[in-house]
Design a protein around this nucleic acid. Structure first.
Length: 878
RNA sequence: GGGCGCGUAGCUCAGCGGGAGAGCACUCGGCUUACACCCGAGCGGUCGCAGGUUCGAUCCCUGCCGCGCCCA
C-alpha cells in the first residue's frame, strides 16, 4: 500500500494547488478503505446506490450534480458514525452500447449479422473492457467516496440471476405477458421502445385533408402521415355527429387502394376537431388500434421494420415512409382528392431517444409488464409516507405518473442485454425459466430471441446490487437504501421502476426512504445546455482548471430543491476563490499558533470577539446540520460561505490580530482559532473534501477528515452571547462609518490620520479602542492633535464622536454629499414611520411589538436628522 | 388542449404578510506584515401588469401578459 502521509503544518504550501494533490489524496482514502461498507461493524446503516450511469457514458454536469449531492450526504453520515455505503456501478445500456459497437463494425462495412449473436456479444464485451466505463475513472476526479469493492454492472452474473429470477416471478404471477400491441418502433435501431425512450419535440410536417369516397358517400379526413392511408381499414365519426348519420354503417372507397372500408361510430372521436371524421389505421396508430379492436376492423401492416412500405397492394411498395408520403400525396392530388393542405404544420413528433429517428407506431408481438398493481403499490408507498419525495411539490407529478402508467414494453430486438428467459415448444408451449432451472430442450424448443429493456435490470438495482435474490448480509444491512438522488427529469426512469420492483421483490418494503430530486444545470443565461447549442461545459475541464472542490462547491451552492441552477466557469472560479480564501485563512491561523487541542479560555477571559465568533460558530453548526438533514444543500453551503468569508475572515481574523499581539489574550485567541477552524473544516468537508483534508490534517494532526467526527452541539458548546455580539456589531458599524469617511475624503489607508474616539466608554465599547484604531488605520492623537473633522456614529447606547486630524482642509463637498445621503435616508425613514403611526387603524390593529418597533425607528430617525442637520450647518460654506 | 411551475438589481438566484437581499458584473481607492483567486468603499430594484383581501401586500386571492416543463 502506497501511503502518502498528510502534510504537516509546516509543510503546507503557500498556495493551494488542487491538481497536484487531489489524485494522491483520493487514492489514499481508497487504500485505507474509508469508503468501504461493513455490515458487521455494528453501526447503523446509511446506504445510497448510484443511479447507474451508462457504460457508454462519460461524466457530464448532470452526473457531477448527482454525485456531489450524494457524496455530501454520505460523507456526512460517515462522519456521524454510520456504516455509510455509496455503491457504484453502471448499466449496460442495451441500445446505446449496441449502437456504438455496430457503428465500429460499419466502418469495415459489416453488420452484427456477419458475426452472429454470440460473436457479436463477445465483441461488445471486448469494447466494454477497452473503452467502456470511462465514467468510473472520472468519478475519482470528482472525489466520489464510493465503495469500489462493491462495484456492480447490470450484466454481471449476479445481477443477471436477479433479472432472471424477477422475470420468472412476475411471469408466474401473471404480471408479465406477451401480446400483439401498438408499440413505439425505431426503424433505425430495429427495436421496440418503451414510452419513456421516446422524446417528443416539434417538427415541421404537413397536415393534409383528403376526400374519401365520392358524391353523397364522401367524407374528408386529415392526417400528418398521408402514407398510412394505405393501411386504412375504416373511417370513424362520433355517433351523435349529425353530419355523418347517413354514412354510419355504410362503406366507402379508399382511394388509391380501392378497398371498401366501413364508416364506424365511435365515442372517442372528437367531433369538434377538424372535420370530425378520422381515418383509422389500426396497425400504425395507438388510438386507431383501439378503434379497430372495438369495431373488429382488419389490421394490415403496410410498413416493414425499416419503415418501408410493404404489402400495401399498391405501386408504393418498396418506398421509404417519407418518400411514400410524398408520392401518395401527389397521386391523391392528381386525382383531385386533396381538399386542403397546411404546410409547414408544426406538431409534436416522437423520436428515438438514442438515435433521434422518427419513431413509427407499429403493431407488434412483444412482452409487457402489467404495471397497474405494481404502480399502485409505488404510489401507495409515497402516499402513506414510507417513501418521502423532496421537494414535496414534485409528489403530485409522481402520482400523476404512477396513476396513469401504460403497460411497459420490456422486449427489445437487440442482442446486447439479458435474453428473455422464455422457451417456446413445438406445440405452442411457453415456458419461463428461472436461474437454477434447466430450460426445456429437444426437437422444436427454442429460446426467445429478444432481450429485456435495460431499465428492467436497472429497476432491480437497489437490491440486486446487494446480492438479491440471495439473503445476504449486505441486503439485510443496506436495504432499503436511505436516499435516492436524481434529477426530476428522470423521476420516472429510475424512481418509478425501482419502486415497483423493490416493493414487489422485497415484501412491500420500498427501495428508499427518501427521494431527493434536483434540477437541471443550465448555462449562465439559464439556457439548457446542449451539444447543438454549443453551450455545454465539461466538468473535467472545470476540475482541471479550478479543482474538484470548486466544482463541488458551485454545485452545492446552486442546488435548491427541485429547481434548476445556472453554472458557468465564472461561478466555478468564484468557488475556487473561496477554497483559496479558506486556505489562506487557515494557514494564517496555523502560522499564528492556532491550537485545536488547547482548552477554550474561561468564559470570563474571552474577548467580545471570541464570544461573538464562538456563538456564531454554534449557530452556523446547528443551521448547517439541520439544512443538510433536510437536503437543503444550497442554503447550507451559502451559510458556510457567508460565515467563513464575511464573518470569520473579514472580522474575526482582523480582530484576532491585535488580540494575538497582546499577551493577555494571545493564548486564548490561539485556542479559539484552533477550535473554530477545526469545527469549520469538518463542517465543510463533505462539500469540499480535498482542501479541508489538507487543512484539517495539517491543523490537528488527525488521520483524516474523512473519518473525523461530524461536529455536534458539544463541539460548539458556547452559547451565543447577545451582549458581546451586539458590541461586535457596534464596532463593525463604527469602523465602517470611519472607513466610509476616509474613502470619501480620499484618505488612503497609508495616509496617517490621527483621531480621538470620544464617547466610546459611554457606549460600553471602551475595551475596543485598539481594535477600532487598527481596523480604521487611525493613529493615537499626538500633542499637536488638531481635529479638522468629526464623524458621528449613532449606536445603541449613544453616539460616538470620531474626531479626526486630516492634516488639512477636508473636502467639504464630499462631506456635504455624504451627510446629505444620510439625511435623506433618515428623512425617508421618518416619513414612513409617521405615515404608519398617523393611521389609527394601524396603531389599533397591528401587534404591539410591531407598533413599538416603528416608534423606535421613528425616534432614531429623528435623532439622526437633528444630528446630521447640525453637522451640515457646521460645515464651512463652500 | 390538460396539469404544474416561474416572472425580485445588468446576469443568475434567495426571500414570501410589517425596515428590499446574495454571488457575479459595474464604479472609485488600495500590492495595509493570510490572501490582488485579495482588501476597503460605493452605484444599482414603481419585487411582470391590473384588480381584490388586509391597519399594512414583493409575499395571500382573482384575472391578464410573458417564459419554461410535463402530459395529450
Amino acid at each position: 500500500m502506497t501511503d502518502t502521509l498528510p502534510p504537516r503544518t509546516a509543510d503546507l504550501p503557500a498556495k493551494w494547488n488542487p491538481g497536484e494533490v487531489e489524485g494522491g489524496m483520493y487514492q489514499r482514502w481508497v487504500d485505507r478503505g474509508y469508503f468501504e461498507g461493513d455490515p458487521a461493524s455494528g453501526k447503523p446503516p446509511f446506504s445510497i446506490v448510484i443511479p447507474p450511469p451508462n457504460v457508454t457514458g462519460s461524466l457530464h454536469l448532470g452526473h457531477a450534480m448527482d454525485h456531489t449531492l450524494i457524496d455530501i450526504l454520505t460523507r456526512r453520515r460517515r462522519m456521524q458514525g454510520y456504516d455509510a455505503l455509496w455503491l457504484p456501478g453502471m448499466d449496460h445500456a442495451g441500445i446505446a452500447t449496441q449502437n456504438v459497437v455496430e457503428k465500429q463494425l460499419a466502418t469495415d462495412g459489416k453488420t452484427r449479422h456477419d458475426f452472429g449473436r454470440d460473436q457479436f456479444v463477445d465483441k461488445v464485451w471486448d469494447w466494454k473492457a477497452e473503452s467502456g466505463g470511462s465514467i468510473l475513472g472520472q468519478m475519482r476526479r470528482l472525489g466520489d467516496g464510493v465503495d469500489w469493492s462493491r462495484e456492480r454492472f447490470t450484466l454481471d452474473e449476479g445481477l443477471s440471476r436477479a433479472v432472471q429470477t424477477m422475470f420468472k416471478r412476475l411471469f408466474d404471477d401473471d404480471l408479465i405477458y406477451r401480446a400483439e400491441r401498438i408499440i413505439n418502433w425505431c426503424p433505425r435501431c430495429h427495436t421496440a421502445l418503451s414510452d419513456i425512450e421516446v422524446d417528443h419535440h416539434d417538427d415541421e410536417g404537413e397536415l393534409v385533408s383528403i376526400r374519401y369516397g365520392d358524391g353523397e358517400d364522401s367524407i374528408v379526413v386529415a392526417t400528418t402521415r398521408v402514407e398510412t392511408m394505405l393501411g386504412d381499414t375504416g373511417v370513424a365519426v362520433h355517433p351523435d355527429d349529425e353530419r355523418y348519420q347517413h354514412l354510419i354503417g355504410r362503406e366507402i372507397e379508399l382511394p388509391l387502394v380501392g378497398r371498401r372500408i366501413p364508416v364506424v361510430a365511435d365515442e372517442h372521436v372528437d367531433p369538434s376537431f377538424g372535420t370530425g371524421a378520422v381515418k383509422v389505421t389500426p396497425a400504425h396508430d395507438p388510438n386507431d388500434f383501439e378503434i379497430g379492436q372495438r369495431h373488429n376492423l382488419p389490421m394490415p401492416s403496410i410498413l416493414d421494420d425499416s419503415g418501408v412500405v410493404t404489402n400495401s397492394g399498391t405501386r408504393f411498395d418498396g418506398l421509404d415512409r417519407f418518400a411514400a408520403r410524398e408520392a401518395v400525396r401527389e397521386e391523391l392530388r392528381a386525382q383531385g382528392r386533396i381538399v386542403a393542405e397546411k404546410r409547414p404544420y408544426v406538431h409534436a413528433v416522437g423520436h428515438c431517444s438514442r438515435c433521434d429517428t422518427v419513431v413509427e407506431p407499429r403493431l407488434s408481438l412483444q412482452w409487457f409488464v402489467r404495471v397497474a398493481p405494481l404502480a399502485k403499490a409505488a404510489g401507495d408507498a409515497v402516499r402513506d409516507g414510507r417513501t418521502t419525495i423532496h421537494p414535496k411539490e414534485l409528489e403530485k407529478r409522481f402520482f400523476d405518473w404512477v396513476d396513469n402508467m401504460h403497460d411497459w414494453t420490456i422486449s427489445r430486438q437487440l442482442w446486447w442485454g439479458h435474453r428473455i428467459p422464455v422457451w417456446y415448444g413445438p406445440n405452442g408451449e411457453v415456458v419461463a425459466v428461472g436461474p437454477d432451472e434447466e430450460p426445456p430442450s429437444g426437437e422444436g424448443w427454442h429460446q426467445d430471441e429478444d432481450v429485456l429493456d435495460t431499465w428492467f435490470s436497472s429497476g432491480l438495482w437497489p437490491f440486486s446490487t446487494f446480492g438479491w435474490p440471495e439473503d445476504t448480509a449486505d441486503l439485510r444491512q443496506y436495504y432499503p437504501t436511505s436516499v435516492l438522488v436524481t434529477g426530476y427529469d428522470i423521476l420516472f426512469f429510475w424512481v418509478v421502476r425501482m419502486m415497483m420492483f423493490g416493493l414487489y421483490a422485497m415484501d412491500g418494503r420500498p427501495p428508499f426512504e427518501h427521494v431527493v430530486l434536483h434540477g437541471l444545470i443550465r448555462d449562465q443565461f439559464g439556457k439548457k445546455m446542449s451539444k447543438s447549442k454549443g453551450n455545454t461545459i465539461d466538468p473535467l475541464a472545470l476540475i482541471d482548471e479550478f479543482g474538484a472542490d470548486a466544482l463541488r462547491f458551485t454545485i452545492a451552492r446552486g442546488a435548491n430543491p427541485g429547481s434548476d441552477m445556472s453554472l458557468s466557469t465564472e461561478w466555478v472560479a468564484g468557488s475556487r476563490n473561496f477554497t483559496t480564501k479558506l486556505w489562506n485563512a487557515a494557514r494564517f491561523a496555523m502560522s499564528n499558533g492556532a491550537d485545536p487541542t488547547a482548552p477554550l479560555p474561561d468564559e470570563s477571559r474571552r474577548t467580545d470577539a471570541d464570544r461573538w465568533i464562538l456563538g456564531r460558530l454554534a449557530e452556523v453548526r446547528e443551521e448547517t446540520d439541520a439544512l443538510l438533514e433536510d437536503f437543503q444543500f444550497s442554503k447550507a453551503t451559502e451559510g458556510l460561505y457567508h460565515f467563513t468569508w464575511d464573518e470569520l475572515c473579514d472580522w474575526y481574523l482582523e480582530l484576532a490580530k491585535p488580540q494575538l499581539a497582546d499577551e493577555a489574550t494571545a493564548e486564548g485567541t490561539r485556542a479559539v482559532l484552533g477550535h473554530v477552524f477545526d469545527t469549520l473544516l469538518r463542517l465543510l468537508h463533505p462539500i469540499t473534501p480535498f482542501v479541508t483534508e489538507a487543512l484539517w490534517t495539517g491543523l490537528t494532526g488527525g488521520e483524516s477528515a474523512v473519518i473525523a467526527p461530524w461536529p455536534t452541539a458539544e463541539d460548539t458548546g458556547a452559547r451565543p452571547d447577545e451582549a458581546a455580539a451586539g458590541r461586535v456589531e457596534a464596532i463593525q458599524k463604527l469602523i465602517t462609518e470611519v472607513r466610509r469617511f476616509r474613502t470619501e475624503q480620499g484618505l488612503p489607508d497609508k495616509r496617517s490620520v490621527a483621531a480621538k474616539l470620544v464617547g466610546l466608554d459611554e457606549v460600553g465599547l471602551g475595551g475596543h479602542r485598539k481594535a477600532v484604531a487598527f481596523l480604521t488605520r487611525l493613529d493615537a492623537p499626538g500633542d499637536e492633535f488638531a481635529p479638522t473633522a468629526t464623524v458621528e456614529v449613532a449606536l445603541a447606547g449613544g453616539t460616538v464622536h470620531v474626531e479626526l486630524d486630516t492634516s488639512g482642509a477636508i473636502d467639504v463637498a464630499a462631506e456635504r454629499a455624504r451627510l446629505g445621503r444620510d439625511l435623506a435616508a433618515a428623512q425617508k425613514e421618518l416619513e414612513q414611520a409617521d405615515k404608519k403611526l398617523g393611521n389609527p387603524k394601524f396603531t389599533e390593529k397591528a401587534p404591539a411589538n410591531v407598533v413599538e418597533g416603528i416608534r423606535a425607528r421613528r425616534e432614531v430617525a429623528l435623532a439622526d436628522i437633528e444630528r446630521v442637520t447640525a453637522r451640515l450647518a457646521a460645515l464651512p460654506a463652500s
